[in-house]
Amino acid sequence: MRDRLADALLRAEAVERDLLDPKTVRDAKLMASLGREHQRLGQVVERAKALEKMDDELAQARELLSFDDPEMAAEAKREVERLTAAIERAELELRPLLVPPDPLHDRNAIVEIRAGTGGDEAALFAADLYRMYTRYIERHGGWRIEMISLADGTLGGIKEAIFKVSGPQAFGALRFESGVHRVQRVPATEAAGRIHTSAATVAVLPEAEEIDLKIEDKDLRIDVFRSSGPGGQSVNTTDSAVRITHLPSGLVVSQQDQKSQLQNKLKAMEVLRSRLLDLKVAEAEAERSRMRKSQVSTGDRSAKIRTYNYPQSRVTDHRIGYTTHDLTGVMDGKLDELMDALHLADIEERLAGDA
């Protein structure tokens, strides 16, 4: 940890020099990037100074342990114990700051929820997850939800919901929700009271920007067709629905929730760009993690990541062995404790992987 701290302090000096360079001032994008890094490293420098002061005080206290005066030696022993504990706490608080943030951390997020195995009960569970995330997002000031696509299921459930979360660090906060979510409970339609297991999948994608990747027109096939289902007077009267196929990857995005063909095309392209960026990021992450198993997986959506057990009022995240019996609170959007545990596990893993 101390070696990593020394590297961070050297980097802080380099960033300080670069910010004073006239070439940097003329490059707005570089200036913004260095400014964010300078802000993060500024916290490291401040805490490092406090840590250095405690190190010096600890060295002085240890020298006093050998004094012949029993009273002074006892006082020095208490001071050594206090400073040792304080240094351990300071190092623990420093650890997250020494991990360079993911470049996509500050992006908006595209969240996709789909009912999986389990029929009507899976669709009801997908609706429960949608409400859970909606309430979690509402608790964060500065975040807002924009619905992109919603396909209703039966009995008040949903087959699919796609929405954008806009706000500071939205993707960074939600990224570990990607995966298969499993529910165990007695469905309302179950007369015999038997517990059923069903599932829904969640995908959290970083919102893509034009600079991230270039999509050639020749790589796209765009089909238009008439909207179906609820949607107002224009449904089934105009070819406003849009289906875009990205030929090189085979990804297909359909959009029919907006009022015009142009709006549907823009929304479909937004989702397509995010899925392509997610694919690009997942491939890069797979290459980096090829030699080690990731504890907090962000790419493998076939993996069961969490179980919501209603009879036991229990929620278990299988990736980090986290369990809470406040299922009601979790389903009401109280996810901060769980999210913090996931992010801490990710930091610990990245520190261990780079060691």
Rank of each mutant, 00 (worst) to 15 (best):
W143R: 09
W143S: 05
W143G: 03
R144A: 12
L150Q: 08
A151W: 02
D152L: 10
D152P: 05
G153Q: 09
G153N: 13
G153A: 14
T154W: 11
T154G: 15
T154L: 14
G156V: 06
G157N: 11
G157H: 13
G157C: 12
K159R: 14
E160R: 04
A161N: 05
I162S: 03
I162Q: 08
F163S: 12
F163I: 13
F163G: 10
K164V: 11
K164M: 15
G167E: 01
A170K: 11
F171M: 06
L174S: 07
F176A: 15
F176H: 15
F176S: 15
E177R: 01
E177A: 07
E177Y: 03
S178W: 01
S178E: 00
V183N: 08
V183M: 09
V183Y: 04
Q184G: 07
R185C: 06
V186F: 10
V186Q: 10
V186I: 15
V186L: 08
P187D: 12
A188T: 12
T189H: 04
E190L: 07
A192Q: 15
A192V: 12
A192W: 11
R194M: 06
H196I: 08
H196R: 13
T197A: 07
S198W: 06
A199Q: 08
T201R: 00
V202S: 01
A203E: 04
L205Y: 07
P206S: 03
P206F: 02
E207V: 02
E207L: 11
A208P: 13
E210S: 14
I211R: 13
I211S: 14
K214C: 06
K214G: 03
E216I: 00
E216W: 01
E216H: 03
D217L: 08
D223W: 02
V224N: 04
V224L: 05
F225R: 01
R226A: 07
S228E: 03
G229R: 03
G229T: 00
G229I: 00
G229K: 06
P230E: 10
P230G: 14
P230C: 13
G231N: 08
G231E: 01
Q233A: 09
N236H: 13
V242H: 00
I244A: 10
I244M: 02
I244L: 06
I244Q: 04
I244D: 04
T245Q: 09
H246S: 06
H246Q: 05
L247N: 10
L247E: 11
P248H: 05
P248T: 07
S249G: 13
S249R: 08
G250H: 10
V253K: 05
V253D: 02
S254L: 08
S254I: 03
Q255I: 10
D257N: 14
Q258K: 11
Q258S: 07
S260I: 09
S260V: 09
Q261I: 06
L262Y: 14
K265W: 05
L266C: 00
K267I: 05
M269A: 10
